[in-house]
Nucleic acid binder design. Structure first.
Lengths: 383, 383
DNA sequence: CGACATATTTCTACAGTGGAAATAAGTATC
DNA sequence: GATACTTATTTCCACTGTAGAAATATGTCG
């Protein structure tokens, strides 16, 4: 397992800016970079040359330039995505899922480990084993990112992780100590949001929101190109969002809050209570599709609630896009009509239409998000 | 009436940054500016000298430096606030209120005019008269800002202003043409928000929210030091915020939305309906204070609703501060307890306490806000 | 093939920066 | 009151990174 990697070209602020521009905005010509960064063409030659020589960037053939014909064709620059590799891990109360990605967060390997214990020291051992296993599959690993549901401080210390019963666990430094790989730990929803921002549906947007459905309800917000976060981030405040004044009571004494209406657990519970037998989430979605009345009703209630939440987010933060993700995102397709109903209830008809998209709902998305944490740490350096 | 004013020192980006730092963060020593802007002390001498020579900045005596004793005392720099004057106007369906302020948005004169017509051409004539009248009271006017309730495009064109029945009125250029004063027009809540950001309770904060109560319910949001705004801004989307599922029906068919619960008109209406006589808003607040049951109930319902709205804003946007303003802000003191109740209903007890403050509720605040639009336009120049 | 259009490179003058050292202006100590 | 000390500000200089002009590269079009 090789860990060291060529350092990101930290030379000047502008060199970094150029490299970042190429990383985020794909193959792009020098002249376009110059325009985006307000630099002269001459400066761009100066800045890009050492990046190409170092092997981080390459010139590629422009090929199909449909809109332009005349003039010297540009030689777009692109990052050599495979020149660095990163590990991303998602830690839950039961298991650790992990992927290896390249610089553009493309997944090149993955693995999984069931937790045998929730004691921090034991978990760290399993994380380290998993990291070692994955590191064998590529030349070298540059950095490791871990996403975890809970309150995380300063990219390393887990202040509280309810699913693991953790309190004040310096996970980042523990893993770093055991693996030797530079490690960054952050909240899982933040990781997911950053991944969408850099390499996902929100690429290029400066203002968007993320709502994740799964075990809990997560919320991420990017405004003016930066994630919005404070010390409370990770408590899952949006899980308390009141959706149905007559809904089930949550442990905090709230009636019908988001986590009691939108989560997979809540939906399964509601249906099971009514039909008196065990079903799983996917089955419920299927039942709703074929208009089985109980499932249909529960799904529609959730859809309407989600619509109201979407509208609330849109009304307060005006995102260009809302991304719906998480394992429970299957709801969105089945409840499409009731989501629109919910939106309509809370949104001025004169306001512009709310754009939203769903992600695949694949569990690996969380790992990819964690890998993006590592990529960002590597690329942006100490802020 | 003199209009021309010494131009803001637009020389270099950094010179502007220094001037802005002094404008916003009051008397401040060169060394502190250097630290804030990440510049060397030497650079600060270079940058500040021409600003002092031009008369925009002055050295003042440091006087009481309570925390430090030894070393050469600093000579803090301050802007000569009285060196420029600005007009700020708030236009409603019935009247125009206006103030003259200095560079720090301190009010030095004010005036008022009842609108004799709502026809754009006539309104512009009255605005121009008012501007001329105010301009006589100071040496010269640098710029004019107008705040208006509605959708405004590009600092000048009013796309729609329901209270005036306007549609696509190029108010900015009309006023500029008639007065010769550089004019900027924006939404009134944005103006209010910017004023709080630059010179009000949110000075120095990078993330805060504003909720205004009055004829309508307004919402302003600043995140990462920039106002959050899109093309819909000015529609008053937060006025549709659902507060009471059993509340009065609004013209858009929403039940108990914010404007039907929180506005002065809604509160007066609710009380009058119950007691069968005419009362005004201030009387109702007084009645509630002495626990008159109808007023108490209406005020408490509004308070609880406002609390829920405050909590929603806090849950989604994590502001460092929420500022409550507008003519109807008297509600906040009288309904303090029920506001806390409303917050409690929607906020995780583990989340940190929400900070909020109220402004005076003086109508002049809107004008001051409009003046800040003019100040910003002058200081920041074309962006 | 020559005219044209656009991208990229080369070259140069120069503005703006950090950093060291000097200077200024106070307090603390004896 | 002299001296040491502390911090703010200024002076000065070497140097980096920039824009901008001009040259060059490389394609399309007629």
């Amino acid at each position: 397992m090789k860990i060291a990697a060529p350092p990101w070209i930290p030379q000047s602020v502008q060199t970094r800016a150029v490299a970042l521009e190429v990383l985020l905005h794909g193959p792009i010509s020098r002249i376009d970079i110059a325009r985006r960064l307000n630099l002269s063409p001459g400066s761009l030659t100066r800045l890009s040359t050492p990046l190409i020589e170092s092997g981080l960037l390459v010139e590629i053939n422009s090929e199909g330039r449909s809109d332009w014909k005349t003039g010297r064709p540009s030689k777009p620059l692109d990052v050599v995505a495979a020149s660095r590799h990163f590990i991303g891990m998602k830690v839950t109360g039961e298991d650790v899922t992990a992927v290896v990605t390249d610089l553009r967060a493309n997944v090149v390997a993955q693995s999984y480990r069931k937790l045998t214990s929730q004691v921090p020291d034991m978990v760290v051992v399993q994380i380290a084993e998993l990291a070692r296993e994955l590191a064998e599959r590529v030349d070298e690993i540059t950095a490791l990112g871990i996403g975890i549901g809970g309150l995380v401080n300063d990219k390393s210390e887990v202040l509280s992780a309810p699913f693991l019963g953790w309190q004040d666990v310096p996970l980042g430094s523990m893993v770093e100590g055991m693996t030797g790989i530079p490690t960054v730990v952050k909240n899982d929803v933040i990781a997911f949001t950053e991944a969408e921002h850099w390499f996902g549906a929100a690429s290029g947007l400066s203002r968007f929101a993320v709502i994740t459905l799964g075990i809990g309800v997560g919320f991420g917000l990017v405004i003016h190109n930066q994630i919005v976060m404070d010390a409370d981030y990770g408590l899952g405040l949006v899980g308390h969002w009141p959706i149905d004044p007559f809904g089930p009571l949550c442990p905090s004494g709230h009636k019908g809050c988001a986590r009691m209406v939108l989560t997979q657990g809540a939906i399964v519970q509601a249906v099971e209570n009514a039909i008196n037998r065990n079903v799983n989430y996917e089955e419920i979605l299927q039942m709703a599709r074929s208009d089985e009345p109980v499932a249909r009703r529960v799904i529609d209630d959730a859809g309407r609630g989600l619509g109201k939440l979407i509208a609330a987010v849109a009304n307060l933060t005006s995102p260009e896009l809302i991304i719906l993700g998480g394992e429970g995102v299957g709801l969105v397709e089945v409840a499409a009509a009731s989501i629109q109903e919910g939106i309509k209830e809370q949104r001025d008809p004169k306001a512009k239409k709310i754009n939203f998209v769903t992600t695949s709902g694949d569990n690996m998305e969380w790992c990819r998000g964690a890998a993006v944490l590592a990529i960002q740490e590597y690329v942006l350096g100490r802020p």
